[in-house]
Simulated assay, not measured.
Amino acid sequence: MTEMLFRTEPYARECTARVVSAGPEGVVLDRTVFYAQGGGQPGDAGLLRWEGAEMPPGEMPPGEMPVTNAVKGENGTVLHVPAAGAPLPAPGAEVTAVLDWERRHRLMRMHTTLHLLCSLIPGAGVTGGQIGVEKSRLDFDLAEPPTKEWLSERLTALAAEDHAVGERWITEAELDENPNLVRTLSVKPPRGAGQVRLVRIGAEAAPVDLQPCGGTHVARTGEIGAVTVAKLENKGKQNRRVYVTLEG
């Protein structure tokens, strides 16, 4: 399995790692700061860099491999997908995995914003969603959403309140006893490990939002900045799509 450092160190921008395997489908490392695509959040991009000092002369010269995406591999691994024609590091080599940090941090801001959006539409199940660098969306099982103006104002105000964002783990049995914690109807929290990660915005005693999530988030909502609800779409009788954008 790949040790997924982004789960415990979401602000780590790079790490050293050992190459387990390498091929055109992707490079597997023993540890990584790259988030693997899932739950509506895109995989990270960046590069792998190596010096070549540990390899026999001529076998693997110094180089770097642009990473265009990170996706889930087999048996709990992360595949770092290379750009077309990029050189690959040799198995056993030590590399430095470097994130495109500006892109990652923006996705963290976006993801946290969608949690705040959930808090403003309580009781409505989330039927779909997608996190993007320029815009993100959530689909709600809802007859009539609030106005764009009201949502924009409240989202920006919640972000400016600079709520702390934290996490805790509960057992799958505890989640079964509290099914209202799950807002997503189309994507269920990952199960099978015995524990489920809860992401909390605000104080433990009275959270702004609390729900299972495996993605990356900012440490405080003040990092989000101003939020604009750009568009509301009717995607069916009980399906309303809400698009959000960020400044900066």
Rank of each mutant, 00 (worst) to 15 (best):
G166E: 00
S136E: 02
E149K: 14
G129K: 07
T156Y: 12
R109S: 06
R109C: 14
T113R: 03
A124R: 11
G123I: 13
L114E: 06
R103M: 12
T171W: 10
L120S: 05
G166I: 02
L138G: 00
T171E: 06
M110W: 01
C118A: 12
M110R: 06
L116Y: 02
T112V: 06
E167I: 04
L138M: 13
R104P: 07
R106G: 01
L107D: 06
M108D: 08
I121W: 01
P146E: 03
L120H: 05
E153L: 14
A164I: 01
E134C: 03
H105V: 05
L114K: 00
T147H: 07
L158K: 13
I121R: 00
E149L: 08
S136D: 03
H111C: 11
E102T: 10
D139S: 10
L138F: 15
R154G: 00
L120K: 08
V133A: 09
F140E: 01
Q130M: 13
I121K: 01
W101D: 03
W150L: 14
I121V: 15
A157Y: 14
G166M: 01
E102K: 08
A124S: 15
K135N: 06
R154S: 07
T156R: 13
A157E: 15
H115D: 09
E167V: 11
W169C: 07
D141H: 14
D139A: 10
L120Y: 05
E144Y: 09
G128S: 06
L151C: 06
L116S: 00
T127A: 14
Q130K: 13
R104F: 11
R154A: 08
L107R: 06
V126N: 02
A160D: 14
P146G: 03
I121L: 15
S136W: 00
K148L: 03
R106C: 05
L117A: 10
L114F: 01
I131M: 11
D162K: 09
G129T: 07
E144H: 09
Q130L: 14
T127V: 13
C118P: 00
L107G: 04
H111T: 12
E153D: 12
G125E: 04
P145A: 10
R168M: 07
H105W: 15
V133D: 10
L120G: 05
G129I: 13
E102C: 00
D141P: 00
V126T: 08
T112A: 10
D162Y: 00
P146R: 05
S119E: 09
A164T: 10
D139E: 12
T113D: 06
L138N: 04
R109A: 05
L151V: 02
A159K: 10
T113Y: 04
A124I: 10
K135I: 01
G128K: 01
R106A: 07
E149V: 08
T147I: 02
L158M: 13
G128D: 04
S136K: 02
G129H: 11
L107K: 08
E144C: 12
L151Y: 10
K148R: 15
W101M: 09
R103H: 11
P122M: 08
E161H: 08
I131N: 02
A157S: 13
E134V: 12
E102D: 14
T156P: 10
H115S: 09
H115L: 10
D100T: 11
H111A: 12
A157C: 07
L99F: 11
D162E: 11
L116N: 01
A164E: 10
A143Q: 11
V133K: 06
E134P: 02
W101S: 03
T113P: 09
A143Y: 07
M110Y: 02
E161F: 01
L120A: 08
